[in-house]
């Protein structure tokens, strides 16, 4: 009897539509986040993460509506991130039905924001998303990057994750920007360094290309959960298949 490792499919949503391509069978509208979320729920996803990558702020209302529709039909936890900058943003997302909110750039630019958010809403709903990149000329230390990896902050990832954990973050969503989109697997050295240094759960993200990568994220990286987008979007693998593979390797998953 033990806590199961989680599989979390991620939807990148732009102006209310899932982007990065989705290719499901039996889905009327392949870009509809609600239909896709329901599909993942049926397949046995443990949670769903939705990242709003819409650049402009005028379409925020679309985001809240999407969150509301997903939350009224899918009875598993929903994390929403992207453009979360103010306490008011968190309040609106939670009120729309998000269970957790993920903070990224705003935490780097204002480290007090994490503490403020955790004090107000509780650690259980505050996820800090950390985008990490190997430091130049290093193969074993990472720095926090913002703006999709374009901006190097010089902040050490291990120091940063410890700091946000101390500030009350309930979970870390750790994305390797070196691996994101490569399909070469998670940067498990990075995941292990972070997961073995803090007491809050770490979700591994960035680079999944096959089911063995998910297993490696848990076994080698020590992650509590694994997040992936494209391998599920294109129906290369179903979540059920991912769970079976993890189970066969001895990892406890929710069946």
């Amino acid at each position: 009897m033990t806590l199961a490792k989680r599989i979390i499919p991620c939807l990148d949503v732009d102006k209310g539509r899932v982007v990065k391509g989705v290719n499901f069978l039996n889905i009327r509208d392949a870009g509809d986040p609600i239909e896709i979320a329901k599909r993942y729920d049926d397949e046995g996803a443990d949670e769903i993460t939705m990242l709003d990558i819409t650049a402009s702020h005028e379409t925020r209302d679309t985001t809240y509506k999407t969150v509301e529709s997903i939350a009224s039909q899918v009875f598993i936890p929903l994390t929403v991130g992207g453009g979360v900058r103010k306490i008011e943003d968190i309040k609106k997302l939670l009120r729309s039905g998000a269970d957790k909110v993920s903070i990224n750039t705003a935490a780097v630019e204002n480290p007090d924001f994490v503490k403020e958010a955790a004090d107000k809403f509780g650690s259980q709903c505050i996820v800090v998303a950390v985008d990490a990149k190997l430091k130049e000329d290093s193969s074993s230390s990472w720095e926090v990057v913002t703006y999709g990896g374009r901006n190097r902050t010089g902040i050490d990832v291990l120091e940063w994750t410890q700091k946000v954990a101390d500030s009350g973050a309930g979970e870390i969503l750790l994305t390797s920007m070196d691996r994101d989109g490569t399909k070469e697997g998670f940067d498990n050295k990075l995941v292990f360094k972070v997961s073995s240094s803090i007491d809050i759960p770490v979700i591994a993200s960035g680079g999944v290309g096959n089911l063995q990568h998910l297993i490696d994220g848990i076994r080698q990286g020590g992650a509590e959960a694994v997040l992936a987008a494209s391998i599920f979007h294109f129906s290369e693998f179903t979540i059920q298949e991912a769970k079976e593979a993890m189970k066969a390797s001895g990892i406890v998953v929710r069946s």
């Binding site: 009897m1 033990t2 806590l3 199961a4 490792k5 989680r6 443990d46 650690s123 259980q124 309930g170 979970e171 997961s195 073995s196 240094s197 007491d199 809050i200 759960p201 509590e224 959960a225 929710r254």
Partner: peptide, 17 residues
């Protein structure tokens, strides 16, 4: 009680006996 193995918050799916 938190540790590197027992993460807190206890977050996720667990068995109910």
């Amino acid at each position: 009680k938190a540790s590197k193995e027992v993460k807190v918050p206890h977050m996720g799916w667990n068995e109910v006996k």
